[in-house]
């Protein structure tokens, strides 16, 4: 593996991937490494545009790494990855995309991830996005996540986009049956002229379905972010959506919440707070000897931790 590949993998949390049990590494549209075990299988789709991951029923402590790296300027791809998670299984899936673009053409990765959770399946899904490179070409990531949850299943989804991605359009859609729980934590930091838009659409179909979505974001320089959420409660269900943003410089953040209760026992809550760093927080850290700039960095680092 080349140095760039290694450092990209490290940035998206997959530095020790080759020691892990199940993985698939995709580079510039091609699979450059794969390993499976008797419980978790990875199959390429026939058209080569993605993989199917099958997790057998009752698989415990499963761990799957599926990083994607893009190092070719002008490269554009759409990848469809499907995850079939068997009954009572409990797996961690670590995905991520690193783009290195030293040239003037754009590099784009559109990852479409679909999760099918059978009854009582548990999934922790972690996704990290990272862009680097000295070229003027944009680094563009457009992730789509679809989640279908059968009775009793649970999923947590952590997404992080801290640096270097010029444009993101993230779509997340989930449909929840009875007794399911979906927890999403999103962290975004944009700078320069970057653009990031995220849209959550969650249908709470089943009784006792619940979701908790937390978005923490920081928009600096003249970057722009949009947060949309659209939660529909069709049963006795619970939703809590929290959008918390810090703006700096000429950064802009727009939050558009939509909650739609179609059942009298649906309990849907949305909170949004956007503002600059609290003056008191800066003063406290300055009283501990930090300059204003250092204090800002400490506050933002904690906020996105």
């Amino acid at each position: 593996m080349q140095e760039t590949d290694k450092s990209l993998l490290e940035q998206i949390g997959a530095s020790d991937i080759e020691t892990s049990e199940v993985y698939n590494i995709r580079k510039n549209g091609k699979c450059i490494g794969r390993k499976t075990n008797p419980y978790i299988d990875i199959l390429s789709k026939e058209d080569g545009k993605g993989i199917d991951v099958h997790v057998k029923d009752n698989t415990l402590f499963g761990m799957v790494h599926i990083p994607v790296i893009v190092t070719e300027s002008g490269f554009t791809e759409s990848v469809y990855n499907d995850f079939y998670i068997g009954k009572n299984s409990n797996v961690i899936i670590i995905a991520g995309c690193g783009i290195h673009n030293d040239h003037h053409k754009n590099a784009t990765h559109n990852g479409i991830h679909r999760f099918y959770l059978e009854e009582n399946a548990k999934v922790k899904y972690v996704e990290k996005h990272y862009g680097e490179g000295t070229g003027s070409g944009d680094k563009i990531l457009n992730p789509v996540t679809e989640i279908y949850m059968k009775k009793g299943s649970m999923m947590t989804m952590d997404t992080v986009q801290i640096k270097g991605v010029d444009s993101t359009n993230r779509e997340t859609f989930a449909k929840l049956d009875d007794d399911t729980s979906l927890v999403v934590q999103e962290k975004v930091l944009t700078s320069n002229k970057q653009f990031s838009k995220t849209n959550f659409k969650v249908k709470l179909k089943g009784k006792n379905a619940s979701t908790h979505i937390t978005s923490r974001s920081v928009a600096t320089d003249s970057s722009y972010q949009e947060f949309h959420s659209n939660i529909i409660g069709k049963n006795a269900c619970y939703a809590h959506v929290e959008c918390d943003a810090i703006i700096k410089d000429q950064g802009k953040v727009k939050a558009i919440p939509e909650v739609y209760a179609k059942h009298v026992d649906a309990n849907l809550i949305h909170e949004a707070a956007i503002g600059k760093i609290a003056g008191e927080q800066l003063l406290k850290l300055m009283s501990l000897g930090f300059t204003e700039k250092e204090a800002e960095e400490v506050i933002i680092k904690g906020f996105l931790k």
């Binding site: 923490r216 918390d244 609290a278 008191e280 927080q281 003063l283 406290k284 300055m286 009283s287 501990l288 000897g289 930090f290 300059t291 204003e292 204090a295 506050i299 680092k301 904690g302 906020f303 996105l304 931790k305």
Partner: peptide
């Protein structure tokens, strides 16, 4: 912050809270 580095310490009347 310059005074803090000289050895001044100050406990606020209203404690400050932080996220994370």
């Amino acid at each position: 912050d310059e005074r803090a580095r000289l050895g001044f310490g100050y406990a606020f009347q209203q404690p400050v809270t932080f996220k994370g």
